[in-house]
């Protein structure tokens, strides 16, 4: 199950790595969704380290992490499917922990290290297992499943079928790719921790 975003305070994970490339995002980003309200003013600038690259992002009080990632950082594997934390398409990992970015206020993630599916290497155990098992049809929801699977295997290198089900039940694949996804997670576990 994904972690519910915190209700207060700031989530930080690790110090900023001075050797990492720094990207100053444009004040006028190529907005696809443009959810920042013109009349609410900027609440401030936060720093998000996304897939190892640090971004300084201007956000309002009510800017969602989902929108900050999609519109300011330009990460499009993070997707809105329901807006209420019920489908998992917007899942990201912050400091290795899954979060529904559609429920998370961006301000509270100042300094966070965020991983999205693009940030995983194509030879990553989970990614390559999903590819080999054909665990994607339209593929829209799959990045969320990939990240949940990565989180599961980090916590539990040898998950049972029931463990896999328990961890992925909050993600919806409307194409019904569940059998292939379950197989892919088992293959990734085997690959990472051979018996």
């Amino acid at each position: 199950m994904r972690r519910h975003p915190p209700t207060s305070g700031t989530v930080t994970s690790g110090e900023r790595d001075a050797t990492q490339p720094q990207v100053r995002d444009q004040a006028e980003p190529s907005l696809s969704n443009a959810t920042n309200r013109v009349d609410s003013g900027e609440a401030g600038q936060i720093t998000l380290t996304v897939n190892g690259v640090t971004h300084h992002v201007d956000v309002a009080d009510d800017t969602l992490l989902l929108d900050a990632l999609r519109e300011a950082v330009g990460v499009t594997s993070v997707r809105e499917g329901c807006g209420v934390g019920a489908c998992g398409a917007c899942t990201v990992l912050t400091g290795g922990t899954s979060v529904s970015s559609c429920l998370a206020l961006a301000l509270r993630y100042d300094g966070a290290e965020i991983t999205t599916a693009e940030g995983l290497d194509e030879n990553d155990d989970v990614v390559s297992s999903f590819v080999e098992c054909g665990a994607a049809q339209c593929g829209y929801c799959i990045p969320g499943f990939v990240l949940m699977s990565a989180e599961l295997l980090a916590e539990n290198p040898r998950p049972s079928e029931q463990d896999i089900t328990d961890h992925l039940e909050g993600n919806i694949c409307r194409c019904g790719t569940y059998p292939e996804i379950r197989r892919a997670v088992a293959v990734a576990a085997e690959r990472r921790s051979p018996k």
């Binding site: 696809s32 969704n33 499009t76 594997s77 993070v78 997707r79 999205t116 599916a117 693009e118 995983l120 194509e122 990614v127 999903f130 590819v131 054909g134 665990a135 994607a136 339209c138 593929g139 829209y140 799959i142 990045p143 990939v146």
Partner: peptide, 13 residues
């Protein structure tokens, strides 16, 4: 498939 798994296919939105 590789692009779908990592969310690299660009959709309309």
């Amino acid at each position: 498939t590789a692009g779908r798994v990592r969310g690299m296919i660009a959709h309309v939105g």
